[in-house]
Amino acid sequence: MVVVDGMARKSMVVPTIAAAEKLRADLEQTLIARGARSMSDALAEYQDYLLRVRGAVTARNITRAIERFLGEDTSLGAITSARAAAQYEAETRRILDGKGKPVAAASHRTVLAQCKRFYAWAVEKGYAAQNPFAAIKPVGKPKV
């Protein structure tokens, strides 16, 4: 059996077909559990990481921005590369309430960078198989 995790491939040899079926079922359960981790739980842990390890005093603001952008009711595995690109595209076109102006380039570029770092952390922790924001290029130029 060949297992593909992100860009890594691993061959696994088992002695019987029954053992292979058991291994397949266990791997499927692991993938479901990994992708089913809720966004709010992961963001709470990420906020603790930012405060404790990175020393970020703005950790609460960062996680709140990511939560607003991705949605608290989603799971980590629900965000695919296509969905991430569509969400970022929608953010670049979002009109601010009461002002009638689009979101500033610096704002949507910042939330994209925060999501990239969050998913890089999630991949490192094993909560996500890949970073869906990794290939997205930021749009626009921030004002100086």
Rank of each mutant, 00 (worst) to 15 (best):
I79A: 04
I17M: 08
A20G: 10
R117L: 13
L43D: 08
E124Y: 05
G98S: 11
R93E: 14
R9F: 02
Y49F: 15
V144S: 03
M7H: 05
R117P: 00
Q29P: 00
T63S: 05
G98T: 08
I66M: 12
V14K: 09
R64D: 11
A86W: 01
A25Q: 12
D48E: 15
V4N: 07
K99F: 11
D5S: 10
L76A: 03
A20S: 13
A42H: 02
A56P: 00
Q47A: 14
R83P: 02
D48H: 10
V4T: 15
Y127T: 09
T58C: 03
K22V: 10
A85S: 13
R64I: 01
G77R: 13
K137E: 12
V53L: 02
E72Y: 10
E72D: 11
L76N: 01
Y49Q: 03
P142I: 01
K10I: 08
L112G: 04
E124K: 15
K99N: 02
K125P: 01
I66W: 00
F69C: 04
A84T: 05
I62V: 14
V123S: 07
A78D: 15
T80F: 07
V139E: 12
S40D: 14
E67M: 07
T16P: 07
N131L: 09
A90F: 08
K116V: 04
V2L: 09
N131A: 14
V3K: 14
I32G: 12
G6D: 11
V53N: 04
A134K: 13
D26F: 01
K22C: 01
R94E: 09
R93L: 14
R83M: 13
P142V: 04
K143Q: 05
V2P: 03
E124C: 03
G98H: 06
V111R: 04
S75P: 00
V53D: 08
D41S: 14
M7D: 10
R60M: 05
R117D: 07
A135T: 15
D48P: 00
A128F: 13
L23I: 06
F118L: 10
M1R: 04
D26R: 15
I79L: 11
Y127N: 02
A84F: 03
C115G: 06
R34G: 04
L51K: 15
T16V: 07
R37I: 14
R68M: 13
R68W: 01
G100E: 04
T30D: 08
G98W: 06
A120E: 13
K101E: 13
R64K: 11
Y119Q: 11
S75Y: 02
R34H: 09
T63W: 00
I66S: 08
A90N: 09
K116N: 14
Y88K: 04
A19R: 14
K22W: 01
E45T: 09
Y49A: 06
E72F: 03
P138I: 04
